[in-house]
Nucleic acid binder design. Structure first.
Lengths: 203, 203
DNA sequence: GCGCCCGGATGACAGATGTCACCCCGGACC
DNA sequence: GGTCCGGGGTGACATCTGTCATCCGGGCGC
């Protein structure tokens, strides 16, 4: 029985090498390709027979999400696992839309990676359990487009007057939107509101 | 000849496990402890005889920089290597001040890690070359310890009164420190000041 | 002892921020 | 036509922030 051929895409070279070492310790898995960005991963897939692709999301050149969609179109029998820091429901949904079969968080125990590779190779789906449930019954983004625009800028440290000028609004209106957002998010002020929204992936 | 005993502290469990696997592939290195935050690393050092500690900077509970300083005081013969994503001169300087012997970036090739461990164990220093030159001619951290403490909390969205209570200071004093910091950094308000300081690695 | 600096505190003041009640106007819906 | 939103605006008010000048007490150098 031959080993499962795995390709890895991850922009931090040290982490890439370490993940490869981790998978190589498994007797039934072999790392056949490594890439530090999405585009390089595509070329690699062209030259190495690959069963499973493990990829980060945030990479230069081409993100893991675009990469996953591309792989689904060009090598439909390569299974894709997204491995990322971000527990954002929005990312998960986009990953699944792009045809990914697995979505794993970097703060899960390292043993789960090899496991996920095997299961995905057998045709199963592997979604981080917490995230899966959270994605389903998670409150949807309560912010309106305006509130998002304004909260974002406020989080950068810009003043109400400044933001008002940029968006061609009156200063009072900007303060009203911020007040709304702070209230919706249950925060104590604009800074906390911005932090909260960012952490939920709404900004 | 016995193996070099290495402890690793890194908050993303998957990366922690992967780094351990990476080091375990080296015949002369053994991973004797793993921790997902600074405080856990300290306890681990108390129970395992350790030669080298490899630690991330940004971790919950206790950052790698505080950890390094603590280790220098309590186990002076444990050599510390900082392994981080951030090429911030301020971080490097603080790491060296905290007694770290190595400063390595996560986007360096993974082969450099084992190498760095060996060299640091032999008593050498290992500093990322690009960063080393950059660090020398960059402005030093203008903030005092108090200013750092306060600015950090302000950046989290806490109010002056809140911060004053936590640090047992008067609210006016907190505002004074913030004013000083804002002024030193040339920012327009506390939020911008915090962002600036963070980007320079001073927070 | 005498300065002198440093961390911390006060008080006062201008300006920014957060909240609320209420107004205006242009669609959409009946 | 009327009515009911929803985006945007106004004004007023209470706090919170940022700034400055000034003060106090404890080390430290001499």
């Amino acid at each position: 029985m031959s080993k499962i051929q795995v390709a890895i895409a991850e922009d931090q070279a040290m982490v890439l090498g370490a993940l490869a070492a981790l998978l190589e310790t498994e007797p039934d898995i072999a790392v056949c390709a490594r890439a530090t960005n999405g585009r390089a991963a595509l070329t690699a897939l062209g030259t190495h027979k690959t069963d499973v692709l493990v990829t980060d999301i945030e990479m230069p050149e081409m993100t893991g999400l675009t990469l996953a969609a591309e792989v689904r179109d060009r090598w439909p029998d390569v299974q894709v696992i997204i491995l990322t820091t971000f527990a954002r429901p929005g990312y998960l949904r986009r990953a699944l839309d792009a045809g990914a079969k697995g979505y794993l968080l970097k703060d899960r125990p390292s043993a789960e990676l090899a496991d996920a590779v095997r299961r995905v190779h057998r045709g199963q789906r592997v979604i981080d359990p917490e995230l899966a449930s959270e994605a389903w019954n998670s409150e949807p983004d309560p912010l309106t487009e305006r509130e998002r625009q304004i909260l974002w800028r406020a989080g950068e440290g810009r003043s109400s007057a400044d933001i008002a000028a940029e968006l061609h609004l009156s200063e009072g209106t900007v303060r009203n939107y911020l007040s709304e957002a702070i209230n919706k998010l249950g925060a104590a002020n604009r800074v906390e509101a911005a932090r909260l929204a960012r952490s939920k992936g709404w900004l």
